[in-house]
Design a protein around this nucleic acid. Structure first.
Length: 324
RNA sequence: GGACGGGUGGGUGAGUGGCUAAAACCAGCAGACUGUAAAUCUGCCGCUCCUUGCGGGCUACGAAGGUUCGAAUCCUUCCCCGUCCA
Protein backbone atom coordinates (compact mmCIF):
# COMPACT_ATOMS: atom_id res chain seq x y z
CA UNK A 1 0.00 0.00 0.00
CA UNK A 2 1.42 3.39 -0.95
CA UNK A 3 1.53 6.01 1.74
CA UNK A 4 -1.05 8.67 0.96
CA UNK A 5 -0.02 12.28 0.52
CA UNK A 6 0.30 14.08 3.83
CA UNK A 7 -2.45 16.57 4.47
CA UNK A 8 -2.74 18.97 7.37
CA UNK A 9 -4.91 18.02 10.30
CA UNK A 10 -5.71 20.73 12.81
CA UNK A 11 -5.84 19.57 16.41
CA UNK A 12 -7.15 21.81 19.16
CA UNK A 13 -6.44 20.63 22.68
CA UNK A 14 -7.26 22.28 25.99
CA UNK A 15 -9.19 21.81 29.19
CA UNK A 16 -12.95 21.82 29.33
CA UNK A 17 -14.48 25.31 29.00
CA UNK A 18 -11.40 26.72 27.29
CA UNK A 19 -13.32 27.44 24.10
CA UNK A 20 -12.11 24.64 21.83
CA UNK A 21 -15.43 24.28 20.05
CA UNK A 22 -15.74 27.98 19.39
CA UNK A 23 -12.24 28.15 18.00
CA UNK A 24 -12.87 25.06 15.91
CA UNK A 25 -15.89 26.58 14.24
CA UNK A 26 -14.15 29.89 13.77
CA UNK A 27 -11.24 28.22 11.98
CA UNK A 28 -13.50 25.92 9.98
CA UNK A 29 -15.44 28.89 8.63
CA UNK A 30 -12.28 30.53 7.40
CA UNK A 31 -10.29 27.54 6.19
CA UNK A 32 -12.84 25.27 4.55
CA UNK A 33 -12.82 22.96 7.47
CA UNK A 34 -15.09 20.55 9.24
CA UNK A 35 -15.03 19.83 12.94
CA UNK A 36 -14.39 16.39 14.37
CA UNK A 37 -15.14 16.09 18.04
CA UNK A 38 -12.69 14.05 20.05
CA UNK A 39 -14.58 13.78 23.27
CA UNK A 40 -15.64 10.59 24.94
CA UNK A 41 -18.88 12.09 26.24
CA UNK A 42 -20.13 14.03 23.26
CA UNK A 43 -20.34 10.76 21.41
CA UNK A 44 -23.57 10.00 23.22
CA UNK A 45 -26.95 10.85 21.83
CA UNK A 46 -29.14 12.80 24.19
CA UNK A 47 -26.38 13.78 26.56
CA UNK A 48 -26.21 17.31 25.29
CA UNK A 49 -26.28 20.03 27.89
CA UNK A 50 -23.94 18.49 30.40
CA UNK A 51 -21.35 17.45 27.86
CA UNK A 52 -21.22 21.00 26.50
CA UNK A 53 -21.97 19.66 23.07
CA UNK A 54 -22.06 22.61 20.67
CA UNK A 55 -25.65 23.49 19.85
CA UNK A 56 -26.75 23.79 16.24
CA UNK A 57 -26.59 27.57 16.25
CA UNK A 58 -23.09 27.45 17.67
CA UNK A 59 -22.03 25.18 14.84
CA UNK A 60 -22.96 27.95 12.41
CA UNK A 61 -23.53 25.54 9.59
CA UNK A 62 -20.10 23.96 9.87
CA UNK A 63 -20.40 20.16 9.63
CA UNK A 64 -19.58 18.42 12.90
CA UNK A 65 -18.57 14.78 13.10
CA UNK A 66 -18.58 12.23 15.87
CA UNK A 67 -21.29 13.82 17.93
CA UNK A 68 -24.33 11.70 18.76
CA UNK A 69 -23.02 8.46 17.33
CA UNK A 70 -23.75 6.22 20.32
CA UNK A 71 -26.94 5.69 22.23
CA UNK A 72 -26.99 5.85 25.98
CA UNK A 73 -26.72 2.13 26.45
CA UNK A 74 -23.51 1.74 24.48
CA UNK A 75 -19.99 2.27 25.74
CA UNK A 76 -17.32 4.13 23.90
CA UNK A 77 -13.74 2.94 23.81
CA UNK A 78 -10.49 4.41 22.61
CA UNK A 79 -10.21 1.77 19.89
CA UNK A 80 -13.77 2.30 18.77
CA UNK A 81 -13.24 6.02 18.59
CA UNK A 82 -10.15 5.52 16.46
CA UNK A 83 -12.07 3.50 13.92
CA UNK A 84 -14.82 6.09 13.69
CA UNK A 85 -12.36 8.94 13.35
CA UNK A 86 -10.37 7.19 10.65
CA UNK A 87 -13.53 6.80 8.60
CA UNK A 88 -14.31 10.49 8.95
CA UNK A 89 -10.78 11.42 7.93
CA UNK A 90 -11.05 9.28 4.80
CA UNK A 91 -14.25 11.05 3.95
CA UNK A 92 -12.78 14.52 4.45
CA UNK A 93 -9.75 13.60 2.38
CA UNK A 94 -12.01 12.56 -0.47
CA UNK A 95 -13.95 15.80 -0.22
CA UNK A 96 -10.83 17.93 0.24
CA UNK A 97 -11.93 19.47 3.49
CA UNK A 98 -9.67 20.45 6.35
CA UNK A 99 -10.28 18.33 9.44
CA UNK A 100 -10.30 20.22 12.72
CA UNK A 101 -10.21 18.03 15.77
CA UNK A 102 -11.50 19.52 19.00
CA UNK A 103 -10.00 17.37 21.70
CA UNK A 104 -11.17 16.97 25.25
CA UNK A 105 -10.20 13.33 25.63
CA UNK A 106 -6.44 13.02 25.43
CA UNK A 107 -6.43 9.24 25.31
CA UNK A 108 -8.63 9.19 22.23
CA UNK A 109 -6.39 11.67 20.46
CA UNK A 110 -3.39 9.57 21.23
CA UNK A 111 -5.18 6.45 20.04
CA UNK A 112 -5.91 8.19 16.77
CA UNK A 113 -2.53 9.82 16.19
CA UNK A 114 -0.21 7.21 17.60
CA UNK A 115 -2.39 4.17 17.27
CA UNK A 116 -2.99 1.42 19.75
CA UNK A 117 -1.06 -1.78 20.17
CA UNK A 118 -2.79 -4.82 18.84
CA UNK A 119 -4.68 -5.65 21.99
CA UNK A 120 -7.89 -7.55 22.50
CA UNK A 121 -11.01 -5.64 23.41
CA UNK A 122 -12.45 -5.86 26.85
CA UNK A 123 -14.11 -9.04 27.90
CA UNK A 124 -16.99 -8.43 30.25
CA UNK A 125 -17.21 -12.00 31.55
CA UNK A 126 -13.56 -12.07 32.46
CA UNK A 127 -13.81 -8.69 34.10
CA UNK A 128 -16.76 -9.72 36.17
CA UNK A 129 -14.93 -12.74 37.47
CA UNK A 130 -11.86 -10.65 38.27
CA UNK A 131 -13.87 -8.04 40.14
CA UNK A 132 -15.56 -10.74 42.11
CA UNK A 133 -12.36 -12.43 43.20
CA UNK A 134 -10.70 -9.09 43.84
CA UNK A 135 -13.48 -8.27 46.25
CA UNK A 136 -13.18 -11.64 47.89
CA UNK A 137 -9.42 -11.62 48.35
CA UNK A 138 -8.91 -7.96 49.21
CA UNK A 139 -6.52 -5.29 47.96
CA UNK A 140 -3.24 -6.56 46.69
CA UNK A 141 -4.76 -9.66 45.17
CA UNK A 142 -4.94 -8.33 41.63
CA UNK A 143 -1.49 -6.89 41.93
CA UNK A 144 -0.09 -10.25 42.96
CA UNK A 145 -1.63 -11.84 39.88
CA UNK A 146 -0.07 -9.21 37.65
CA UNK A 147 3.28 -9.73 39.33
CA UNK A 148 3.07 -13.34 38.29
CA UNK A 149 1.78 -12.78 34.76
CA UNK A 150 3.72 -9.67 33.89
CA UNK A 151 6.26 -8.43 36.43
CA UNK A 152 7.29 -5.53 34.24
CA UNK A 153 3.79 -4.08 34.10
CA UNK A 154 3.26 -4.81 37.77
CA UNK A 155 6.08 -2.42 38.56
CA UNK A 156 4.28 0.39 36.80
CA UNK A 157 0.82 -0.03 38.26
CA UNK A 158 -0.11 0.84 41.82
CA UNK A 159 -1.62 -2.02 43.82
CA UNK A 160 -4.74 0.06 44.37
CA UNK A 161 -5.32 0.78 40.70
CA UNK A 162 -7.79 -2.02 40.13
CA UNK A 163 -9.03 -0.70 36.82
CA UNK A 164 -5.61 -0.82 35.20
CA UNK A 165 -4.70 -4.10 36.89
CA UNK A 166 -7.79 -5.74 35.52
CA UNK A 167 -7.08 -4.52 32.05
CA UNK A 168 -3.55 -5.88 32.31
CA UNK A 169 -4.70 -9.29 33.50
CA UNK A 170 -7.34 -9.36 30.81
CA UNK A 171 -4.80 -8.76 28.07
CA UNK A 172 -2.32 -11.23 29.52
CA UNK A 173 -4.91 -13.98 29.70
CA UNK A 174 -6.42 -13.35 26.30
CA UNK A 175 -3.12 -13.02 24.44
CA UNK A 176 -1.15 -15.44 26.64
CA UNK A 177 1.62 -12.86 26.68
CA UNK A 178 2.66 -10.14 29.12
CA UNK A 179 1.08 -6.77 28.32
CA UNK A 180 4.49 -5.13 28.36
CA UNK A 181 5.62 -7.46 25.62
CA UNK A 182 2.54 -6.87 23.48
CA UNK A 183 3.13 -3.14 23.84
CA UNK A 184 6.61 -3.52 22.48
CA UNK A 185 5.20 -5.00 19.31
CA UNK A 186 4.32 -1.41 18.51
CA UNK A 187 1.46 0.76 17.44
CA UNK A 188 0.32 1.85 14.05
CA UNK A 189 0.49 5.60 13.93
CA UNK A 190 -1.80 7.66 11.76
CA UNK A 191 -0.58 7.90 8.19
CA UNK A 192 -1.23 10.55 5.62
CA UNK A 193 -1.92 13.39 8.01
CA UNK A 194 0.31 16.05 9.44
CA UNK A 195 -1.07 17.32 12.74
CA UNK A 196 -0.91 21.03 13.48
CA UNK A 197 -1.59 21.29 17.19
CA UNK A 198 -3.02 24.30 18.92
CA UNK A 199 -3.31 24.28 22.70
CA UNK A 200 -5.60 26.53 24.70
CA UNK A 201 -4.26 27.24 28.17
CA UNK A 202 -6.15 30.13 29.75
CA UNK A 203 -5.13 31.40 33.19
CA UNK A 204 -6.26 28.94 35.83
CA UNK A 205 -8.41 31.40 37.77
CA UNK A 206 -10.26 32.60 34.71
CA UNK A 207 -10.85 29.05 33.55
CA UNK A 208 -12.32 28.06 36.88
CA UNK A 209 -14.60 31.06 36.80
CA UNK A 210 -15.86 29.97 33.42
CA UNK A 211 -16.40 26.48 34.67
CA UNK A 212 -18.55 27.84 37.47
CA UNK A 213 -20.53 30.14 35.25
CA UNK A 214 -21.03 27.45 32.64
CA UNK A 215 -22.31 24.99 35.24
CA UNK A 216 -24.88 27.51 36.39
CA UNK A 217 -25.87 28.21 32.81
CA UNK A 218 -26.27 24.53 32.04
CA UNK A 219 -28.49 24.05 35.05
CA UNK A 220 -30.53 27.08 34.10
CA UNK A 221 -30.72 25.71 30.59
CA UNK A 222 -32.59 22.57 31.55
CA UNK A 223 -29.90 20.09 32.40
CA UNK A 224 -31.95 18.46 35.12
CA UNK A 225 -34.82 18.03 32.68
CA UNK A 226 -32.47 16.39 30.25
CA UNK A 227 -31.44 13.85 32.86
CA UNK A 228 -35.06 13.19 33.78
CA UNK A 229 -35.90 12.66 30.12
CA UNK A 230 -32.97 10.29 29.56
CA UNK A 231 -34.00 8.23 32.54
CA UNK A 232 -37.58 8.12 31.36
CA UNK A 233 -36.49 7.12 27.88
CA UNK A 234 -35.03 3.90 29.15
CA UNK A 235 -31.34 4.59 29.48
CA UNK A 236 -30.43 2.25 32.34
CA UNK A 237 -29.14 3.63 35.62
CA UNK A 238 -26.00 1.61 35.10
CA UNK A 239 -25.19 3.25 31.76
CA UNK A 240 -21.67 4.57 31.51
CA UNK A 241 -22.88 7.93 30.35
CA UNK A 242 -24.79 8.44 33.57
CA UNK A 243 -21.48 8.49 35.41
CA UNK A 244 -20.24 11.55 33.58
CA UNK A 245 -19.66 14.66 35.62
CA UNK A 246 -22.95 16.24 36.46
CA UNK A 247 -25.09 13.36 35.29
CA UNK A 248 -24.26 11.38 38.38
CA UNK A 249 -24.92 14.34 40.65
CA UNK A 250 -28.20 15.20 38.96
CA UNK A 251 -29.40 11.63 39.25
CA UNK A 252 -28.85 12.00 42.96
CA UNK A 253 -30.96 15.13 42.90
CA UNK A 254 -33.74 13.25 41.15
CA UNK A 255 -33.49 10.49 43.72
CA UNK A 256 -33.75 13.10 46.46
CA UNK A 257 -30.30 12.43 47.85
CA UNK A 258 -28.97 15.89 47.16
CA UNK A 259 -30.38 19.33 46.51
CA UNK A 260 -29.64 21.39 43.44
CA UNK A 261 -27.34 23.74 45.24
CA UNK A 262 -25.18 20.91 46.54
CA UNK A 263 -25.19 19.32 43.13
CA UNK A 264 -24.05 22.52 41.51
CA UNK A 265 -21.15 22.86 43.91
CA UNK A 266 -20.18 19.22 43.45
CA UNK A 267 -20.31 19.54 39.68
CA UNK A 268 -18.15 22.63 39.68
CA UNK A 269 -15.61 20.94 41.85
CA UNK A 270 -15.51 17.76 39.78
CA UNK A 271 -15.17 19.82 36.63
CA UNK A 272 -12.27 21.77 38.06
CA UNK A 273 -10.46 18.57 38.88
CA UNK A 274 -11.22 17.20 35.47
CA UNK A 275 -9.84 20.31 33.80
CA UNK A 276 -6.71 19.92 35.83
CA UNK A 277 -6.21 16.32 34.74
CA UNK A 278 -6.70 17.37 31.14
CA UNK A 279 -4.02 20.01 31.49
CA UNK A 280 -1.65 17.45 32.99
CA UNK A 281 -2.24 15.18 30.03
CA UNK A 282 -2.02 17.83 27.34
CA UNK A 283 1.12 19.40 28.71
CA UNK A 284 2.93 16.24 27.66
CA UNK A 285 1.51 16.29 24.15
CA UNK A 286 4.30 16.88 21.68
CA UNK A 287 4.49 19.76 19.29
CA UNK A 288 1.67 21.88 20.63
CA UNK A 289 1.55 25.63 19.90
CA UNK A 290 0.25 26.91 23.19
CA UNK A 291 -1.98 29.99 23.39
CA UNK A 292 -2.60 31.59 26.76
CA UNK A 293 -6.28 32.36 26.46
CA UNK A 294 -9.77 31.22 25.50
CA UNK A 295 -10.84 30.06 22.06
CA UNK A 296 -13.48 32.74 21.79
CA UNK A 297 -11.07 35.63 22.19
CA UNK A 298 -10.43 37.41 18.86
CA UNK A 299 -6.75 37.76 19.68
CA UNK A 300 -6.38 34.04 20.31
CA UNK A 301 -8.39 33.16 17.22
CA UNK A 302 -6.14 35.35 15.12
CA UNK A 303 -3.04 33.76 16.60
CA UNK A 304 -4.41 30.31 15.94
CA UNK A 305 -5.10 31.19 12.34
CA UNK A 306 -1.59 32.53 11.90
CA UNK A 307 -0.22 29.23 13.13
CA UNK A 308 -2.44 27.09 10.94
CA UNK A 309 -2.54 29.03 7.68
CA UNK A 310 1.12 28.66 6.70
CA UNK A 311 0.79 24.92 7.18
CA UNK A 312 -2.02 24.53 4.71
CA UNK A 313 -0.15 24.96 1.47
CA UNK A 314 3.13 23.39 2.51
CA UNK A 315 3.16 19.83 1.20
CA UNK A 316 5.45 17.45 3.06
CA UNK A 317 7.11 19.49 5.78
CA UNK A 318 7.25 17.76 9.12
CA UNK A 319 5.08 19.18 11.82
CA UNK A 320 6.90 21.71 13.86
CA UNK A 321 5.87 22.82 17.27
CA UNK A 322 6.78 24.58 20.41
CA UNK A 323 7.11 22.35 23.40
CA UNK A 324 6.23 23.72 26.77
C1' G B 1 -26.43 37.30 85.55
C1' G B 2 -26.03 31.59 86.21
C1' A B 3 -25.17 26.17 84.36
C1' C B 4 -23.16 23.17 81.02
C1' G B 5 -20.70 22.11 76.10
C1' G B 6 -17.09 23.93 72.85
C1' G B 7 -12.88 27.03 70.42
C1' U B 8 -7.16 22.47 66.69
C1' G B 9 -3.51 23.71 60.30
C1' G B 10 -7.61 26.51 53.85
C1' G B 11 -12.39 23.39 55.52
C1' U B 12 -14.68 19.23 58.34
C1' G B 13 -12.61 16.90 62.43
C1' A B 14 -9.44 13.19 65.70
C1' G B 15 -6.19 13.81 69.45
C1' U B 16 -6.41 14.39 76.96
C1' G B 17 1.26 15.17 79.45
C1' G B 18 6.48 13.00 75.74
C1' C B 19 6.07 8.23 70.11
C1' U B 20 2.53 15.31 67.55
C1' A B 21 4.17 19.85 62.50
C1' A B 22 -0.39 17.33 65.01
C1' A B 23 -4.84 11.03 62.55
C1' A B 24 -8.52 10.84 58.87
C1' C B 25 -11.27 13.02 55.11
C1' C B 26 -12.08 17.20 51.77
C1' A B 27 -10.12 21.17 49.10
C1' G B 28 -5.44 22.72 46.70
C1' C B 29 -0.88 21.64 43.90
C1' A B 30 2.15 18.26 41.05
C1' G B 31 2.23 13.69 38.44
C1' A B 32 1.04 8.71 35.95
C1' C B 33 -2.11 6.59 32.55
C1' U B 34 -2.13 1.89 25.07
C1' G B 35 -9.95 -0.02 24.61
C1' U B 36 -14.17 2.55 31.59
C1' A B 37 -10.34 8.18 30.32
C1' A B 38 -15.77 13.54 32.42
C1' A B 39 -12.50 7.11 34.28
C1' U B 40 -8.65 5.10 37.47
C1' C B 41 -4.41 5.77 40.32
C1' U B 42 0.26 8.13 42.76
C1' G B 43 3.02 11.94 45.40
C1' C B 44 3.20 16.65 48.06
C1' C B 45 0.58 19.59 51.26
C1' G B 46 2.99 25.41 58.31
C1' C B 47 7.45 28.55 57.14
C1' U B 48 12.50 28.31 56.36
C1' C B 49 17.98 26.78 55.88
C1' C B 50 21.50 23.69 53.90
C1' U B 51 26.31 19.45 53.25
C1' U B 52 18.71 16.87 50.83
C1' G B 53 19.04 13.91 55.83
C1' C B 54 14.36 8.74 59.02
C1' G B 55 18.80 16.71 58.81
C1' G B 56 18.76 21.84 61.35
C1' G B 57 16.02 26.28 62.83
C1' C B 58 11.47 28.95 63.54
C1' U B 59 6.21 29.38 64.18
C1' A B 60 1.50 26.66 65.46
C1' C B 61 -3.85 23.85 68.55
C1' G B 62 -8.88 31.30 70.91
C1' A B 63 -5.52 35.01 74.31
C1' A B 64 -2.37 35.84 78.42
C1' G B 65 -0.11 33.78 82.46
C1' G B 66 1.22 29.32 85.41
C1' U B 67 2.53 23.94 86.75
C1' U B 68 6.19 20.46 84.58
C1' C B 69 12.57 18.07 82.46
C1' G B 70 8.47 18.28 78.73
C1' A B 71 1.60 20.92 77.32
C1' A B 72 -2.86 21.04 71.87
C1' U B 73 -3.41 17.99 76.19
C1' C B 74 -3.15 19.96 83.53
C1' C B 75 -4.28 24.89 86.47
C1' U B 76 -5.83 30.33 86.55
C1' U B 77 -7.90 34.55 84.35
C1' C B 78 -9.83 36.75 80.06
C1' C B 79 -12.22 36.70 75.04
C1' C B 80 -15.53 34.33 71.62
C1' C B 81 -19.40 30.49 69.98
C1' G B 82 -23.59 27.01 71.05
C1' U B 83 -27.42 25.04 74.23
C1' C B 84 -30.15 25.55 78.60
C1' C B 85 -31.71 28.33 83.23
C1' A B 86 -32.90 33.31 84.92
Amino acid sequence: MNAPIELPLVVIVGPTASGKSTLGVWLAERLDGEVIACDSTQLYCGFDIGTAKPALKERRGVPHHLLDVLDGKEESTAGGYRELALAVLRDLRARKRLPILTVGTGLYLRALLEGLADLPQRSEELRERLWASAEEHGVGYLHRIVERLDPESAGKIAPADEQKLIRTIEVCLLTRKPLAEVHRSGRKPLEGWRPVKIGLMPPREALYQRVHARTEAMLAGGWLEEVRRLMASGVPESAKAFDFIGYRELRKVLRGEMNLEQASAAIQQATRRYAKRQMTWFRREKGVHWLAGFGDEPKIQQEAKEIVSPQLGAPVTGARGIDV
